[in-house]
């Protein structure tokens, strides 16, 4: 192979790979991202067999305006408030303005120091403006708003659209059949006066 040809091939390969990687990052950040669900926190709906066989479900997330028209029961992804480099996938339980009646059973799965923090809620939480109350479906083994409180809507970077793997369940949204046992009194979101722009 002549040196000219080698140089051109290298140049074209570098160009193509840089372009491909850029497009992939752009699409992951702004359009759609495919993530796998590990752990048992979303167990009845997503990755039900992860504890026994280690199989994971892969879901596609919408990254464009994820909090637009958000509803109770939607599945959202966000960088974990405890570890910002880890992505958490949880279910929206309460919108801003709602009163969430905390599930007593979830307290028993917590370590004692977390239980003391949980008790300061006094059994219920009025979700502040611009925030969401998120929980995993499984009552134990889920690090969610019961641990770190309501999370800002601006933290949320994706909303689940559907399953992509396993292939037999492609396109399904198994989380819509499950109803969370945490009770919510619906309210109206009112921006506090001191936060008006």
């Amino acid at each position: 192979m002549s040196p000219i040809l080698t140089g051109r091939v290298l140049y074209q390969c570098a160009k193509a790979s840089i372009f491909t990687i850029s497009v992939a990052i752009f699409a992951n950040d702004n359009l759609f991202e495919i993530v796998s669900i590990s752990g048992k926190s979303m167990t009845p709906a997503l990755s039900p067999d992860h504890n026994t066989s280690g199989t994971r479900d892969w879901i596609v997330l919408r990254k464009m305006q994820p909090t637009n028209n958000i509803k109770r029961g939607d599945i959202v992804s966000y960088p974990s408030p405890h570890n910002p480099d880890k992505i958490a996938v949880k279910r929206v339980i309460g919108l801003d303005g709602d009163t969430v009646l905390l599930d007593q059973r979830r307290r028993s799965a917590m370590p004692p120091e977390k239980q003391r923090g949980w008790d300061t809620w006094g059994g219920k939480c009025v979700v502040p403006y611009g925030h969401l109350w998120v929980e995993g479906d499984h009552w134990s083994g889920s690090l969610d708003s019961n641990h770190y409180g309501p999370i800002p809507k601006s933290l949320i970077d994706g909303r689940a659209l559907g399953l992509v793997w396993p292939w037999s369940r492609f396109g399904q949204t198994p989380w819509t059949q499950y109803r969370s046992k945490t009770r919510v009194i619906e309210g109206i979101a009112v921006c506090p006066k001191e936060w008006e722009l």
Partner: peptide, 24 residues
């Protein structure tokens, strides 16, 4: 971003916790 390598006293930009989803 995500607080990597930050030290106390730095000026940081953050997405607003109340109005961040409106682009603030």
């Amino acid at each position: 971003r995500h607080g990597r390598g930050l030290e106390v006293g730095d000026l940081v930009t953050y997405k607003h916790p109340y109005h961040g989803d409106q682009g603030l």
